[in-house]
Structure formats: structure tokens, C-alpha cells
Design a protein around this nucleic acid. Structure first.
Lengths: 137, 137
DNA sequence: AATGATTTGCAATATTGTTGCAATATTTTT
DNA sequence: AAAAATATTGCAACAATATTGCAAATCATT
């Protein structure tokens, strides 16, 4: 099972909750918020466990966070090539204003940006809002 | 008084709360979160009023929102040249990992990014984390 | 199968955000 | 300058979201 492999690779215990949540991410097209997971019909996991699982996954490099302007954090799977503990915001996130889904555009790299003197960049996130390919018609 | 002018220009009633909150933004070096304003010692404004004021300011184009990954929204003054109702994420925001302040790098424009076919961008936000000029030493 | 380590769920609590409405303050009109 | 109309504020109640400690359950290791 794919989920188990991911968990083991990350050095985490393989539990039902974690497998289930991971499965949701695999099944989902876009990014998920905490609420999406908690309210998912087929799920019956304590809120607290969901919080802790998401945190664990972020720390293990299984998922990464996407900042938003609506007091939620979105989470999305990292590509296999990501390493644990590494920050994963170096690709572009696209939020569709029509269907409201968030896609990770894994192939679009964040362009370099020239900062004023003295500012030392460590990590860069880029969030594009617009209309996605599915809503274009 | 500068605050009054800003409010009038935006077509808003000039009230004590609004002037006070606006003053905080003028006095602050970086961006502010709702909590920063509410908890500011010299302020005694109802939570609800702070929420509503921030929302009004965003809608009027006085401040703009900066997405984060910690379940807060940061707010920062817009430059004079901004127009009400316009979206204001077209410049780069810099969050310092050391002092934790968020600066709007007004002069750094968000670079164009080439999206996959079918994705139509409307608005782009860019958040850079790193070390700011004040913490460089 | 037994042990130790980790994870889970519950309960309690804290923090954050929203809504309706009456009282107050501001703007506009006279 | 006062009255009328409009807009804003604060309170109260509520809703939603997030955190912590701890005992019970699960998982990994032997």
C-alpha cells in the first residue's frame, strides 16, 4: 500500500488515522484545509488527531503548507523528491477563483526576485489567483 | 491630521476608532495582525470593531492583506497610489525569521511567471522569508 | 506474547471570528 | 446650529477553531 510506504519512509508509525488522512491527500486533486479533512464524510477521526497528524506530516516533509488570506492554512502533498525537514514552497500555488481548488503547479518554478540590499532570502512562496484550466470553459 | 485625510479620501466616516487604528499602522514598521492591534496597550477598542475596521480598510484600499501559514492574516498600509477596491498583492512581502516583522517591499515588483496552458492569472502574491536588513548584523 | 514507546480520543480550556441589536456618533439636510 | 438621516460602535450571545494534559489504546521491538 502506497500510504504505508510513505509513512515508513518518513520514519513514522503506521496508524489507521495517518493512513486515512494520507489517502485523502492522494485522492484529492488540490490542497486540503484542516476543515476539509475533519468534515470529510468517510472520516471519523478526532479533531485533535487531525491537527497533530497534519503537524507531523509537515515536519516530516510529507505535506507542505500554503498561505492564504482567509485564516486557513492549506496543505498539499510534497513531491517524492522532497526531503524531510526541508521547506517546500519553491513552486507556485494556484488558487482558482471559480472552483476554489488550489493546485500545486509543481513544474512552475518560483522566479528569482531581486531584493533590496541587506535582505537575505531563505524561502519564497508564490500564490497566483485566477481561473484554472478546468473552469476555463 | 494625516489619518483624517486618508479616511475622507476613501469616503469613510472619520471616527476615533478608525483614526486610532490607522495611527497604529502609520507608527508600525511592519505589517500588523488583528491580535497586534487588539492587544496594543494604548488601545481600548472592542474586538468586533477591530474586525470590522480592518475589513472596511481592506475594502476601501487603505490596507491590504498578506497571507501567512500560521492562521493569521497580516495587514499593511497600501501606498498612496493604490486605488480602492483594487487588489494589492502585486508587490513582494518579506517576513523576517529573526525579528518576525513583515515588510512590504514596495519597490520590488512580482515577476511574471509562466503558467501552464489554460491557467489564467488574475492576482499574484509573493512572500519571501529570510533575514531583514535590521537583523543582518 | 510481553515490553516499551508512540499515538489516540476525551475533556476541559483558550483563542479567534461572527451576528443581531440597541445606543452612540457622524454626516447631511434643513 | 439643530434636526433628520445615516453609519458606526459596543455589548451579548454564539460559533468556530486551536491547544493541553492525561488515561486508554495502538504500534514497534524484543
Amino acid at each position: 500500500m502506497q500510504q504505508e510506504a510513505v509513512l515508513k519512509k518518513a520514519g513514522l508509525s503506521v496508524t489507521e488515522s495517518r493512513k486515512t488522512i494520507l489517502e485523502l491527500f492522494f485522492a484529492s486533486e488540490g490542497a486540503l484545509a484542516h476543515a476539509d479533512i475533519e468534515k470529510h464524510s468517510s472520516i471519523n477521526i478526532d479533531r485533535v488527531t487531525v491537527y497533530r497528524t497534519l503537524q507531523t506530516f509537515v515536519e516530516s516533509g510529507i505535506i507542505h503548507q500554503i498561505p492564504t488570506t482567509d485564516n486557513t492554512i492549506l496543505y498539499a502533498l510534497c513531491k517524492d523528491s522532497c526531503e524531510a525537514g526541508h521547506h517546500h514552497d519553491e513552486h507556485v500555488h494556484f488558487i482558482c477563483v471559480s472552483c476554489n481548488k488550489t493546485n500545486c503547479l509543481d513544474d512552475v518554478m518560483v522566479p528569482m526576485v531581486k531584493l533590496p540590499k541587506g535582505f537575505l532570502p531563505i524561502q519564497t512562496a508564490m500564490i497566483v489567483k485566477g481561473t484554472c484550466i478546468d473552469c476555463r470553459n
